[in-house]
Design a protein around this nucleic acid. Structure first.
Lengths: 107, 107
DNA sequence: TTATTATATTGCAATATTACGATAAATAAA
DNA sequence: TTTATTTATCGTAATATTGCAATATAATAA
């Protein structure tokens, strides 16, 4: 019991759920919005912006990377993070499609 | 410690994270897509569609309701669930705005 | 080489989530 | 009233997530 039965669901449902899970923590939402707010992708100061310790921030960045929501490229000793526009577009289109389908409904 | 430091983040970041958390499980994604697939909102057969026991489905429905992603209205002994278009639109616009901001960027 | 700097990993404690059997609650039908 | 039917809640076990100190890794600078 208690085990997440993700294998019982379709790959598509799991993929969407994983995208949302990556954004299901305020720290990760804050990271995405911070990456949006800075001019360039070059930014190694995310730890300074968040009220969390460096290992915790590193962990959150890893989850966003694993979900393909952000990309990181090595720049000497620092790492440059930026948002992956492809993934954002996938999510936007997903909700756009839901909205479209809702327009042909009674609710 | 392990306690989620959600109070350390803005209300806006928490609100968006809570929306995504509601959709961060394949069962809840499946519920949303099932509600989209049926003609009317009148549906008391969600349990039949999912590979989960009735109390588990009830719990997932509760989380979607709490996040305002679905609405439920009592119809005799059954409950009619349907998607809340307002919340879907909030999410779509959120990603639309991110996409817009990304267009003016180097990445 | 030895610092220094930036990020990642490990290990662990605290908490949250997931799942379901048992049971309760509420309404409808007999 | 009694009996179905439908959904919700309780209690609990299994697992996942969150957070951070300590430490490791990797690249640069001195």
């Amino acid at each position: 019991m208690g085990v997440s039965k993700s294998e019982s669901f379709s790959v598509a449902h799991n993929e969407m759920a994983n995208l949302f899970k990556a954004l299901s923590h305020p720290a990760r939402v804050a990271i995405v919005e911070y990456l949006l707010s800075v001019d360039t992708c070059i930014c190694g100061d995310i730890v300074e912006v968040l009220p969390l310790a460096q290992p915790t921030v590193s962990q959150h960045l890893k989850e966003l990377k694993n979900a393909n929501i952000i990309k990181g490229s090595i720049d000497g000793t620092a790492i440059c993070y930026c948002i992956n526009p492809d993934t954002i577009e996938i999510i936007e289109k997903y909700f756009g499609s839901i909205n479209q389908q809702l327009k042909n409904k009674c609710c």
